[in-house]
């Protein structure tokens, strides 16, 4: 019990992944599974960053291309490409990344607030930078990434509703 508390306080467990030559990390608590890249069904007229939908054991979940989301150059999916399935606030979404590297425990003291701009990625999506083991890991603010999307799709739905009237 005491040890667990310590982890929660002084360490963060993150899933570390690769995206366009950068190393990122996201809180492991939000990750429900990591699957291999599979054929994604394109959803026409969905928001641009939405790559499409996949069948996750009978559930249909949307898949977001994180490169697209961050405004990075798109790239062909390779054998290393993975879909990180995250679950937050009741929604399940797959995030496409170039490769998943490892799961790390990062001491809290090595995490610093994010700089204004990191390789073109909007700072709003970032939670901090971890300098750990001689590497720089950019920690994502997952909530922000998903939340913002929701607003946009909502706008879309409203636009559709307008057409109806």
């Amino acid at each position: 019990m005491a040890q667990k508390f310590e982890i929660a306080k002084d360490e963060e467990q993150v899933v570390v992944f690769q995206l366009a030559d950068q190393t990122y990390g996201m809180d492991i608590a939000a990750v429900s599974e990591i699957i291999r890249m599979e054929k994604v069904t394109y959803v026409p007229r969905a928001p641009e960053f939405v790559e499409g939908v996949i069948n996750l054991r009978g559930r249909i979940i949307p898949v977001i291309d994180l490169r697209g989301r961050f405004g990075l150059k798109g790239a062909e999916h390779t054998r290393q490409s993975r879909i990180i399935v995250v679950e937050m606030a009741g929604v399940t979404v797959g995030l496409i990344v170039d490769a998943v590297l490892e799961v790390l425990r990062i001491p809290a003291e090595s995490i610093e607030p994010p700089p204004a701009m990191v390789d073109g990625v909007d700072v709003a999506y970032l939670r901090g930078i971890a300098l750990f083991d001689g590497r720089m890991i950019i920690l994502l603010n997952l909530e922000k990434i998903l939340e913002e999307d929701e607003k946009e799709t909502l706008g879309e739905a409203e636009a559709a509703a307008e057409v109806t009237v």
């Binding site: 007229r45 249909i60 799709t153 739905a157």
Partner: peptide
């Protein structure tokens, strides 16, 4: 018939999905 889920919300021209 399966829903596209809350996240995508309503996509114009698409009413749902199936496997």
């Amino acid at each position: 018939i399966k829903s596209l889920g809350d996240y995508l919300g309503r996509v114009p021209g698409i009413s749902g999905a199936t496997i």
